[in-house]
Structure formats: C-alpha cells, structure tokens
Amino acid sequence: MIRAQPFLRRNALGLIGLTILFVAVACALAAPYVAPYSPTSISLVARMKPPAWIEGGSLSHLLGTDNLGRDILSRVVHGARISLAVGFAAVILGALIGSTIGILAGYFGGWIDSGLSFLIDVQLSFPFTLLAIFLLATFGGGFWPVVLVLALATWVNYARVVRGKVMSVKGQDFVHAAQTVGVPTLGILRHHILPNAVSPIIVVASFSMAQAILTEAALSFLGVGVDGSNPSWGTMLNDGRSYLQSAWWLTAMPGIAIALTVLGGNLCGDWLQDRFDPRLAR
C-alpha cells in the first residue's frame, strides 16, 4: 500500500506550485525592471497589435497591445503587483480575524464559544457573492474595500479550522501543566496554542490566496473590483471581454496569469495539507 517514494516525486507538485508563486512574486517586486514599458503609457495608433508570434505582431510588444495601445506584457507584470497584493492582504486580514475568533472560541468555550459560533453560522448562511456585490456597490470598489470584503468572506474558514485544532490541543498535558504553574492566559495562547494552530492556518491561507485572486477577477466582471490607474489582472480581463472574439490576447494573457497563480496556490495548499495533516477537513 504505502510505497517508498523519492523526495522529488513526493514533493513534485508542491515544488511546481512554489516555483509558480515565487516567479509571480518576483515579477511583482521587480515590475519596473522587468516590464519593457510603463503599464499606462497609451498609444492610440498602436492599438490592438497581436502578440509577436502572430502575423502583424512585432517583437517590440511581445504579448501585443490592448485597446488603448498599451503593452500587454508590461501590464501583466505590473498587474501582478495589484493582484498579489489583493491576495496577500486579504489572506493576512482574513487569517488575523479568523484565527483570533477561532482561538478565543476554542480555548475559552462556554458562552464565548456559543456567541462566536453563532457569528460563524450567520456568516455561513450569508451568500458570499451577493454580500460582496452588495457591499462594494454600496460603498464603492477599490483596493481596500475589495480586500476587506474578501477578508470578511474568508475569515470563517480559518475560524472553523483553528477552533477545532485549539479544542484538541487544549486538553493536552503541556497546556494543563502551563495552567497549573500559573502561566498567564495570554502567554499560554501565544506560546502553546498559537504555534499548534499555525499549520492549519497556512494550509487554509494558500487556498484562500488562490480563491481571492479568482474572486477579484469575478468582482471585476460584475463591475465592482479594484479599479485604479494601475490594472489588476481581473480588471484587464474585464476590460478585454468585449474583444474576446476579435482580439483574444487582451483576455488570454491576464487569464493565463490568473490561472497559473491560482494553480500555484492550490498546488501549495494540497502539498502543505499532505505534509502537515492529511486528515485536515476543508
């Protein structure tokens, strides 16, 4: 049943995922050096140029130009900044809220647990997409509103997983020992409970990261996404959707970027889940 597998084979998918994410992050950090042009420099006479390998394309615009004659490669590279920033910010915020609630509910139990669990129940019965559109259409889109909404949507995942983990940990001897010798509650939470909850948090985070980037694209489609001077991948995808049949590269390039990054996030998530806790329920 259980075969011995060489390291590389066991970790191949995870390594692929990590590599993809690493490349995406590197692009985002080094965007001004990697991108051949400014992502916002417009040239109306050079609009809709196809990628270099298609007839009519040229090497000066490797991935072609968009409806305003902007270089798509430059926009995809710069777009990584916004899309990844949205993903990371949403993950960090969601994880902070969710883990805090999960730890509190799991450790203290009783009415605190009941109250927080009720909150989780309310959130779970609230249709997420509708919530997101509702909030964003009411308060307006933009970077922070989108991050906030994504965090609001995902904190439950952390809260549930962390609560379960904490409940199992707190019954163990070393926690009892710490309590008996009079370690303050905050200290117990920090030194004994939190470290044990880290692995499930990281697993949920890598899935959430993928989900956040995908959801940002969906929100852009509905007209309530991040919409600033610099494009996110979702915005690019949405801006190009009228040209899907006449100039496919406007949507294909950011689409591939999204799909790859999401794939990276999901591969990492799977891999970490296998390593940390194969039985972890999602």
Partner: peptide, 21 residues
C-alpha cells in the same frame, strides 16, 4: 479618462483617475 490623462501629462498635469459609484 485614461486617454485624456495621457494627453494632459505633457503639460505637467498629473492625473489621478477615479471610478465613482
């Protein structure tokens, strides 16, 4: 808005583009 902004840039007019609900 994006195109108008690019025409104003050479005049030293630096634009911020905002979508309003």
């Amino acid at each position: 808005s994006e195109v108008v902004a690019s025409f104003l840039e050479p005049l030293g007019i630096t634009s911020t583009i905002e979508a309003v609900e």
